[in-house]
């Protein structure tokens, strides 16, 4: 079995994201690390659905075993939308925080 597949790369991306969230001090970099995590999740789900040599899940003259599972793709569309709105809100909050604290460094934001 090939170890370099979508599932392992997805998990590594999630770990890279967690590393970024826990070590970066710049708030924008933290939000980018969150995005990397979500990319990892999306890759993980898409790889679960993958069938070796499968085709697109459209009705046609295929055996049911030949098609790629479409459900995780549908789920990931939802996750992508949720992630988009969360990121947009986070960036809006960053703008406000920068206005009030005049820094993007999380260590310097004291109450």
């Amino acid at each position: 079995m090939n170890l370099i597949n979508g599932i392992s790369i997805g998990l590594i991306l999630i770990l890279i994201g967690f590393f970024g969230i826990s070590t970066r001090k710049n708030i924008i970099k933290i939000i980018l690390s969150l995005n990397i995590c979500f990319m990892g999740i999306i890759l993980f789900y898409i790889s679960i659905a993958y069938v070796e040599g499968g085709t697109i899940p459209v009705l046609g003259p295929f055996e049911p075993i030949d098609i790629v599972d479409p459900l995780p793709h549908a789920l990931m569309l939802t996750t992508a939308v949720v992630e988009l709105s969360t990121t947009a809100l986070a960036l809006a909050l960053v703008m406000k925080v920068y206005e009030k604290y005049e820094t993007l460094n999380v260590r310097e934001m004291k109450l």
Partner: peptide, 29 residues
């Protein structure tokens, strides 16, 4: 001032929580 900071902190931690939840759901599926 502190409202925006608290909201941002909450956002980042809840996103981490969603990532872990999604990972578990993916493994289940």
């Amino acid at each position: 001032k502190e409202n925006y900071k608290a909201s941002l902190k909450y956002l980042i931690l809840e996103s981490i929580s969603s990532i872990l939840f999604l990972l578990a759901v993916g493994i289940i599926y």
